[in-house]
Design a protein around this nucleic acid. Structure first.
Lengths: 136, 136
DNA sequence: CTTGACTCTGTAGTCTACTACAGGGTTTTG
DNA sequence: CAAAACCCTGTAGTAGACTACAGAGTCAAG
């Protein structure tokens, strides 16, 4: 399983062939070696990289942000401080998202709790309250 | 501050006028009352609703999902069980997102930890490892 | 009472992230 | 050794979420 065609990496990563080529055009994955006939030849670390992209996308990162995350990983020797700073910024970003998702989950939890049975659903405005209440 | 024009709600919510009209077309906010001249007249709860949309969007919900969240809140009396089920599904959804963001944050944290100083950044591949390692 | 800021409807353009051909060559398999 | 299944490049179309006019009416300050 040393080298595989685009169809195989795509399937392994759960993507379409066109999407893999698209990611290559976007610079998210490096252009792979080519066979004599011009076929792309991938090694299995490409699958890892593609899976990473899929997961990051699922979490809500844009392709551009994913590109940044991948660069963090790739940046060689020099600019370690830079890499670190960017990683920290990303972490802060993620923590904000987590906190806000937590607030939303709590609000929905309360909604479910109060909705128990067949009440008048009048308290469903909790949702809005809990979520737009504090903003500072 | 009983009634305001679209420009004012837009500014209060941190959006453009066109975007507010767009959200109305999409059914995310109700069509407001109109002045004699046909101007939209908003009450300040519109600002809350718009801010909710902005925040939910920031967290990574699509407009469609936001519409669903807002419906949960709005559904009157009947269909409480339905509302509950949908809220629970949304909670499960949110928890998955939180977990994945947590994994990503931990991975980035490790990256930052190891990158401390000015090492050769060779260990930066942690990023990939931690994130695509477990998938079952 | 004019001028500039604001609003209206409606349509069209932009950006992101794909997705789908067209038209052609290559590899594999029955 | 065909025929199916793949791969190639390049272009164009789609869906979501805006964003920007055009052309016209309205309101508020000086």
């Amino acid at each position: 399983m040393a080298l595989m065609t685009i169809g195989k990496v795509a399937r392994a990563a759960g993507l379409g062939v066109e999407t893999v080529r698209f990611y290559e055009r976007q610079g998210l994955i490096p252009a792979p070696a080519r066979s004599e006939a011009g076929y792309r030849q991938y090694r299995d670390d490409s699958v890892r990289r593609l899976r990473f992209i899929v997961r990051a996308k699922g979490i809500g990162f844009t392709l551009h942000e994913i590109g940044e995350l991948l660069e963090l990983q790739a940046t060689e020797g020099a600019g370690c401080a830079n890499v670190q700073a960017r990683a920290e910024a990303k972490i802060a970003d993620i923590e904000v998202r987590i906190a806000e998702l937590g607030a939303m989950r709590r609000a929905l939890g309360e909604l479910v709790g109060q909705c128990r049975g067949e009440g008048p659903v009048s308290s469903c405005s909790i949702l809005g309250d809990a979520l737009d209440g504090d903003r500072s």
